[in-house]
């Protein structure tokens, strides 16, 4: 029982990281119907920006919560800028082309970030400095949680609520909803669709950057290709929850994280990468539009 609870704690932590990445996928998809394949690589960049910020602040030798926050924020800002540049330079020119053209562009951007990363940072893994020294806290019943896990969970929660607030209660957020519902009508209502799309990319990229830094706290080995698998699985998580649906992305991320940790714990770590997809196929066969997604029939 205690082992199961321990797995659950680890699964929720890991799942909240997936959720952060999945949010970016789902927001961009909701607005552009584009699978932004480069999103996982933004997560990788987040970890690297955090790495450089930490080195610059000398946060490893002299750690403080303030510095850790600074590392997180600088990675988020840097990736936010990357998101804006990415959208303006690569995606905007193909927005009126076919969805597949946009998809191939996204693949191109993804390859560019990965290989650019190899070129700039080198192909070998780097080690993220210990800006928050690890400490385990007993929760009772034999379950422990590390302070890093608590940090991952709480930062994820704060960011998710911040996103929720932005989307539901700010003008820009309401405009995002409008564009996602019907871009043409939104434009006719005087919403600058271009600005909203760019803003969405920025927001998604910032969340991915946060995920990158948070993961690097726990698994300090970072390298330019580290974003591929988490990116892919976060995307699957977004589909699981119902792509385009923000609570769905969070739910999908949690389901995915927990399922993965349980498979590693009880089946075999080598099947870890397969479980995401088995889960996906089973859920899609039962609910073709994802857990929270609504199946919209085409009007005839």
């Amino acid at each position: 029982m205690s082992e199961f609870l321990q797995q659950l704690v680890n699964g929720v932590t890991w799942g909240s990281v997936y959720a952060l990445i999945a949010l970016g996928y789902t927001m961009v998809y909701g607005i552009l119907r584009l699978i932004n394949f480069a999103h996982g690589d933004v997560y990788m960049l987040g970890a690297f920006f955090g790495f450089f910020a930490a080195r610059f602040l000398n946060a490893a030798r002299d750690p403080s919560p303030f510095k850790a926050l600074l590392v997180l924020l600088s990675a988020m800002v840097a990736c936010g800028i990357i998101g804006i540049v990415m959208e303006r330079a690569a995606y905007k020119p193909v927005r009126r082309s076919s969805r597949l053209a946009a998809l191939i562009t996204a693949i191109g951007v993804s390859l560019l970030l990965e290989n650019g990363g190899i070129l700039l940072f080198g192909p070998d893994p780097k080690f993220f400095p210990q800006i928050i020294p690890a400490r385990n806290i007993a929760l009772g019943m034999g379950v422990t949680i590390s302070n890093q896990q608590i940090l991952i969970l709480s930062v994820s929660l704060v960011l998710m609520f911040a996103l929720r607030f932005i989307v539901l209660h700010t003008r820009t957020g309401k405009a995002m909803q409008a564009v996602s519902y019907n871009p043409m009508a939104a434009a006719l209502m005087g919403i600058s669709v271009d600005r909203i799309v760019t803003f969405t990319f920025m927001l998604g990229s910032m969340l991915a950057a946060a995920a990158g830094v948070l993961v690097a706290l726990q698994n300090p080995k970072i390298e330019p290709l580290m974003g591929i698998m988490p990116g892919l699985k976060a995307f699957v998580a977004a589909v699981l929850g119902g792509i385009g649906n923000i609570p769905g992305a969070v739910l999908g991320g949690l389901v995915m994280g927990i399922a993965e940790v349980l498979v590693v714990g009880y089946v075999s770590p080598t099947y870890r990468d397969a479980i995401a997809f088995v889960l996906l196929i089973v859920i899609l066969l039962v609910r073709p539009a994802g857990i929270l997604g609504r199946n919209v029939a085409e009007k005839v």
């Binding site: 690569a90 193909v94 191939i104 562009t105 993804s110 290989n115």
Partner: peptide, 13 residues
Amino acid sequence: MVIYSLMLIVLMI
């Protein structure tokens, strides 16, 4: 690979 990916993007645009 950097050139390859850039060409892919430029061709698609």
